[in-house]
């Protein structure tokens, strides 16, 4: 039988700790496939976040460093400036990139650091028990807003991709999702472009991937992807936000 689909060679055989229906596994695989296809594995450095993907280095074979919570883009800046010939990417969640690391994110983007950012947005702090994140939608229930996010008390969902897009240092931002096969293909295309931009020294490129978190959305895996289709992407539209 002809093998028509397999996981990337860059992924390890480790069994992941991700919950059933989580989007991280798909996104890890897409990043690995893209790096493999571009032939840049031998010069790629990954920066693993604090959050659900904290153990990403167990699941992929990139040379990888951890970073303190919120600091991946400062660490990426250090690596890329010291060794511009390397391909550097950060893999970050919404709490990491858009709350505790807001300053690092904004300033790396504004400096136009020539790095690639994979921003996985599931609207909650998954690792710590599903607390409200900067990107939690209004009325969405979490462990720290059990009656739903209330704008008066909690403020509004942070439109971080739109915020970054206005900065002159940013070259490319696209929002995608991985809730169905078509969306996965589009996400892979976006990730590839974000790496290609770095190879071509175009500057700061980020893909925001809306990802499902069945566990802390209180839904089954199927219900979680349906929620993305019927609800989330109506409020947080997918597509290219900036491409120069």
């Amino acid at each position: 039988m002809k093998e028509i689909y397999k996981k990337s060679n860059i992924l390890t055989d480790a069994i992941t700790h991700y919950c059933p229906g989580c989007g991280h596994g798909i996104i890890h695989n897409l990043v690995c496939e893209v790096v493999e296809e571009l032939g840049i594995m031998e010069k790629t450095i990954a920066i693993a976040p604090v959050g659900c993907a904290v153990l990403a280095y167990d699941y992929w074979k990139f040379d990888t460093t951890e970073a303190a919570h919120g600091r991946p883009l400062a660490v990426a800046t250090g690596i890329k400036r010291a060794r511009p010939e390397l391909i550097v990417f950060t893999y970050q969640g919404d709490g990491d990139l858009a709350a505790i690391g807001t300053a690092e994110t904004v300033h790396a983007a504004n400096r136009g650091e020539n790095v690639t950012v994979i921003f996985v947005n599931n609207g909650v702090y998954g690792m710590t028990g599903g607390q409200m994140a900067p990107t939690t939608l209004l009325s969405q229930k979490t462990a720290t807003c059990i009656n739903g996010r209330n704008a008066k008390r909690d403020g509004y969902p942070l439109k971080v991709s739109e915020m970054l897009a206005v900065l002159d240092g940013v070259c490319y931002i696209e929002r995608t999702s991985v809730h169905n096969p078509g969306a996965v293909i589009k996400t892979k295309k976006a990730i590839k472009k974000a790496f290609q931009n770095q190879i071509e020294k175009k500057g700061f490129s980020m893909v925001e991937v809306i990802s499902q978190c069945p566990t802390y959305w209180g839904l089954s895996p199927v219900e979680a992807v349906e929620k993305i289709e019927k609800d989330i992407i109506k409020k947080v539209p997918l597509g290219v936000i900036k491409d120069v």
Binding site: I45, A68, A74, T77, G78, R83
Partner: peptide, 9 residues
């Protein structure tokens, strides 16, 4: 953290 990054490489 930038120093951390440079030290990594």
């Amino acid at each position: 953290s930038m120093v951390f990054g440079a030290a990594c490489v």
